[in-house]
């Protein structure tokens, strides 16, 4: 019987292959993020100070919503074509398989947001040092969001049009990420000490990484009753 690591790698590879076959699903959240965060400067006007002030918050809200937008489909197609059943009934531990799927989700949704964040930051006239901080907060934040989102997606997988419920479940848990993420970038922009925020986001990500896979597995079993 293949080991856990093999199962984890195979799951991640399969999900990445599936995303490649359907690039639209991957691009959707990214386009949404870029649209929302670049429309704000156009609507508000070219005042440098205002832009610098709202930039961190707007970027973070756009990133959070983009991640939420993509979560619904995380387990949906597996549920519909019966492959979720096969995963639930396999001899491999379900948390490992769930973590593999979550990693793939982050690689195709979260990571691209982090990579394009500098483009967005430039439209808000944020200086280079702040852009680095923004990328760091988004990197840690999107990891946590993928992991938390997997729990919500697993709980709502059997529910028709569960998107609203999914947001309702995930948003409260992700509020600390939004508050600390946006505030950390704002502090960095104001030349103040911001390291505490980074530490908090890192701690949150580690906590989510430790606990979320088990919660996701339990949720998947419940929603497949």
């Amino acid at each position: 019987m293949p080991g856990m690591i093999t199962a984890f790698v195979a799951t991640t590879q399969r999900e990445l292959l599936l995303s490649l076959r359907r690039p639209g699903d991957m691009l959707n959240p990214l386009v949404f993020f870029l649209m929302v965060s670049t429309l704000f400067p156009l609507a508000i006007g070219p005042d440098n100070e205002t832009l610098k002030e709202i930039g961190p918050g707007v970027t973070w809200v756009a990133a959070l919503l983009a991640m939420l937008l993509s979560l619904n489909s995380l387990f949906m197609s597996d549920y519909e074509d019966g492959s979720l059943e096969q995963l639930l009934l396999s001899g491999q531990p379900l948390p490992v398989i769930g973590l593999g799927k979550t990693l793939a989700h982050w690689l195709v949704t979260g990571l691209p947001l982090v990579i394009v964040a500098p483009i967005v930051a430039v439209t808000y006239r944020l200086p280079n040092e702040v852009i680095v901080v923004m990328m760091m907060t988004l990197l840690l934040g999107t990891i946590s969001l993928s992991l938390l989102g997997a729990i919500g997606a697993a709980l709502t997988v059997g529910i028709h049009r569960g998107t609203a419920l999914l947001s309702l479940l995930v948003l409260p848990l992700s509020m600390p990420l939004l508050i600390f993420g946006a505030r950390t970038v704002a502090l960095a922009a104001g030349n103040e000490v911001y390291s505490a925020g980074i530490f908090f986001l890192a701690a949150y990500a580690v906590g989510a990484l430790t606990l979320a896979p088990f919660a996701t597995a339990a949720a998947l079993r419940i929603s497949n009753e």
């Binding site: 359907r22 019966g82 492959s83 096969q86």
Partner: peptide, 16 residues
Amino acid sequence: SQFVWYGHRTGFKQDL
């Protein structure tokens, strides 16, 4: 790990 399931749905991804 002792059984294999053959359900109503194939459990295979349509894109693969």
